[in-house]
Design a protein around this nucleic acid. Sequence first.
DNA 1: TAATTTATTGCAAAACATTTGCAATAGACA
DNA 2: TGTCTATTGCAAATGTTTTGCAATAAATTA
Lengths: 165, 165
Amino acid sequence: MDTLVQQVATRLRDEGGRMTSQRRLILQALEELGGHPTAEEIFRHVSRQSPGINLSTVYRTLNWLEENGFIAPRWFEEERRRERFEPAVQIARSHHPTPFHFRCRSCNRILEFADPRMEEIVAQFERRSGARVKDVELTLYGLCQTCAKTESLSGTSPHHEGFIR
Amino acid sequence: MDTLVQQVATRLRDEGGRMTSQRRLILQALEELGGHPTAEEIFRHVSRQSPGINLSTVYRTLNWLEENGFIAPRWFEEERRRERFEPAVQIARSHHPTPFHFRCRSCNRILEFADPRMEEIVAQFERRSGARVKDVELTLYGLCQTCAKTESLSGTSPHHEGFIR
DNA sequence: TAATTTATTGCAAAACATTTGCAATAGACA
DNA sequence: TGTCTATTGCAAATGTTTTGCAATAAATTA
């Protein structure tokens, strides 16, 4: 299995694009960060190694990756910025193209999961409505195990190492 | 069953708020427009009757309604603006607090539906993860019946009266 | 290997939806 | 009818993402 950088390099070559040092750094950041980073987080990560890089370059690269199916974006609830993640990573783990998400309202941690029963729900909707479904987004919100415990015995803030972003 | 305006008036009175002419107009717009209007659409609708009204008043009212559970917001895919809808209307139709959505990628039409099997999926996720789920957002994307037909025989644009916004 | 081509970058400014500070206005209640 | 203060309109700010443009640097060619 290829690394993200290699896969992207191949695709770029195919369509006359160019693999630049900035793109390489952004792709590495994507792999190193994992999870669901925002453009800003990727920018900060990359800036540590190469302070000259520009935010708009990050956005342009992220958009290109999105258009080419290497990453997928998601907006969670009230958040105004979109988070990107690698659907490709998920294909290996489940048979669903994009994973379902759970987001903890307290610590913002994101859990991914799959459930084959979703397919029946979609199939029935298609039969009844006559529509053709291409993509499914399922997001659950609530409290993760740790935050649920913490919350039940004390205040409201998360006491475990979580990312509040 | 009360009209939206009446319900909101009651709640306002309870907490020392005031029913203003602007709020009344926005609530009527919500009822007249139905569906999933954006703040901008509500603003345009209200402006026709009362050109003096301000966009920020619309936003403030919408936020208050949201905080008080009279409407719910949703972001669809790449859209940067949020659409608001009345979950209250849906409670009557299904036993789920917020309806599931299907959005046509061609004409942007939104279909709402419910499926009791979702509960099992959520319950299993809770059991396996230890998390406590408070809300569920399910959105399907694809082509509605009309657009699917149109698309299969000709080009790409929707030929039925849809809202492209 | 150097020259050429043009995709990509950095920068600054714009776009876009939404929020906010503040003085003026107008509901609700005494 | 007067008083109190929640709500408004306005203008400016916000935060995220996009864009125009001249400069830069990958990739290709000679």
